[in-house]
Structure formats: structure tokens, C-alpha cells
């Protein structure tokens, strides 16, 4: 008897569901880090599937830097409400008090304080022992080696030399007090898989992914959308309405838009398989330095 061909996407879906159920069964206090982007949307959809008809037995956590696109925040709140899930939002108040922001503090410090530190604060505050993240191995070279269950010390540090071998579908979930595991159920998905799945499953995503005329400024060769008054124009800069969309979403001042007329999912997927630049290029934080992601990870960034 020959096995029926199970499509690639169905295999990926089953693998992710399996991973999520392992976490729900073996950890006392898991959480899903929800960053509102397309990968989070897929991850959340898979969680709904994994525990159906029950709700996912963990809350969502959004680490809000206060610089996310307004449409993201709106989408976040609507999504949690629509699915009936508990949403925790954490803001690093200390960073706010210190006046950290992406313009004056620089992207590196802003990310460090408002994202990395903030995430650690939130994990400590609630005592989560496992946190789902939507990272994929195909995103970036150092991620290719990331485990699905990635062990973090009590100080949230990631040590590339001290990760556990992962065989079969058997994950070692044992940790001591204070230690935690980051779990990446989308590890084996590629960007194209994500889009195809969103299309096939009709998963709602933030409208910013679709092309629309938006007010943008060209800064250091990147198109930045001016989402609110906090962004001051520099001498010589001009705000123009251009037909753009976003391939990844983050803090608006740090996220580059691309010129595109893809205003449907079909359009996006078509654009994807003719794409010539990888998605991370739109993220300004990565372009500083080749191995910067490596450093951030050791410090506890996702």
C-alpha cells in the first residue's frame, strides 16, 4: 500500500501542531509571543487548530515598544477579541521613562531596551517557563541552526554551544527553576510556505501587508512610513504618498516599505515567487552588521 502524497503544507501544519501540544502538555506556564505579523498570524491559527475544540491553553503576550504601526495594535486587539483569547501587553515603562525611542536613541538601543529587555521583564513578571515564537530557520543564517526547543538560562541567555540535540519528534522539555525554553513551531516553514498557507486557510493579516497609498519618507535609502506625529522630517525630506506595502512588520520607524501594487493575497504570493530581495532587508535592525542577529540572540532577543 502506497502512502497518499501528503502535501508539504499539510506536513508542516501537522508538525507545528505536534510541537504546540507537546508544550501544552509538558510545561506549567507557557505563553505565545504574539508579534502581530504574518508569522504570528499563522502561528496563532495553528494554535487554534492544535487545541480545537478547546481554546489554546495559554495566553498571548505582545511586547509593545509603543512604536508599532497603529493598524497593528488595532488588529492585535481585534484578533484577541475575535478568538476569545487572553492577551497580555507589556511595555517597558522604565524605557519610556528614560525617553528611549528609535529616532534619538538609535535603532540598536531602542530594540535592546524596548524589545529585548522588555521581553525579559515580561517573562520574569509572569514566570513563563515556555514561550512560543514565530521565528523560521530560513529567515537568517544563524537561525538555520536554531533548535525547535531552544534552551535559555535563568538570565534568558542563549548559548549556541549548550543546546540539546533534537531527535525525531522527541523534545527534551525538562528545565530547572527560572530556566525557560523558547519554542519555534514554524522552524521548518519558509516565507513562501507562510504566504501559501495564509492564502489556503484564509488567515486574516494586518492590512499593512497589502499595497495602498501611504505617506512615506525616503531615509537612508529606505521608505519609512510616517505613522504619527512623533516622526519629524529632516531637512530636505519630503513626505509623499506612494503605493507601498510591507513584507515584515515591526516598529514603524525601523520598517522599510517596498513599492508594490500587490493589494490581494494572490498578488502578494505572485510577488513572492518572483522576489529578489529577502524579507529581512526591510528590517533596518539587521543591516548594521552581518552577524548582529547572533549577538542579539545571545543577549536574549528572539
Amino acid at each position: 500500500m502506497k502512502s497518499p502524497v501528503v502535501s508539504h503544507l499539510k506536513r508542516l501544519e501537522a508538525e507545528s501542531i505536534h510541537i504546540m501540544r507537546e508544550v501544552a502538555a509538558e510545561f506549567a506556564n507557557p505563553v505565545m509571543l504574539y508579534s502581530i505579523g504574518k508569522d504570528s498570524s499563522v502561528m496563532l491559527h495553528l494554535a487554534m487548530k492544535a487545541f480545537y475544540p478547546a481554546k489554546p491553553p495559554f495566553p498571548l503576550l505582545h511586547v509593545d515598544t509603543t512604536w508599532k504601526f497603529r493598524e497593528m495594535i488595532q488588529f492585535r486587539d481585534e484578533t484577541a477579541k475575535r478568538l476569545g483569547l487572553k492577551l497580555l501587553v507589556h511595555i517597558n515603562e522604565d524605557g519610556i521613562a528614560r525617553g528611549i525611542n528609535p529616532f534619538d536613541s538609535g535603532s540598536a538601543l531602542h530594540t535592546q531596551v524596548m524589545k529585548t529587555e522588555s521581553l525579559k521583564q515580561a517573562l520574569d513578571k509572569y514566570g513563563f517557563d515556555a514561550a512560543f515564537g514565530g521565528a523560521r530557520r530560513d529567515e537568517e543564517k544563524s537561525r538555520a541552526k536554531e533548535r525547535i526547543f531552544s534552551f535559555r538560562t535563568a538570565t534568558h541567555a542563549w548559548d549556541p554551544k549548550n543546546q540539546r540535540p533534537e531527535l525525531w519528534r522527541v523534545y527534551n522539555t525538562r528545565i530547572n527553576k527560572g530556566e525557560s525554553i523558547r519554542v519555534f513551531p514554524l522552524s521548518n516553514w519558509t516565507e513562501l510556505d507562510i504566504w501559501q498557507y495564509i492564502l489556503a486557510e484564509k488567515i486574516p493579516i494586518v492590512p499593512l501587508y497589502f499595497a495602498k497609498r501611504r505617506p512615506v519618507v525616503e531615509r537612508d535609502g529606505t521608505l519609512v512610513m510616517r505613522d504619527d506625529e512623533r516622526m519629524k522630517l529632516l531637512p530636505g525630506e519630503r513626505l509623499e504618498d506612494r503605493l507601498v506595502r510591507f513584507r515584515t512588520l515591526g516598529c514603524y520607524p525601523l520598517t522599510g516599505a517596498i513599492e508594490s501594487d500587490a493589494d490581494t493575497l494572490e498578488g502578494i504570493v505572485t510577488e513572492m515567487f518572483t522576489a529578489r530581495t529577502s524579507e529581512r532587508q526591510g528590517r533596518l535592525i539587521d543591516s548594521d552588521e552581518k552577524s548582529s542577529m547572533e549577538k542579539k540572540k545571545k543577549e536574549g532577543y528572539f
Binding site: 502535501s7 508539504h8 503544507l9 501559501q196 489556503a200 504570493v269
Partner: peptide
């Protein structure tokens, strides 16, 4: 394209 994807094995 999508139809082809569906038939693709891994």
C-alpha cells in the same frame, strides 16, 4: 503554481 505546490512532495 499553487496546484503544482499541492502535489509537491517533501
Amino acid at each position: 503554481f499553487l496546484a503544482a505546490q499541492e502535489k509537491k512532495s517533501l
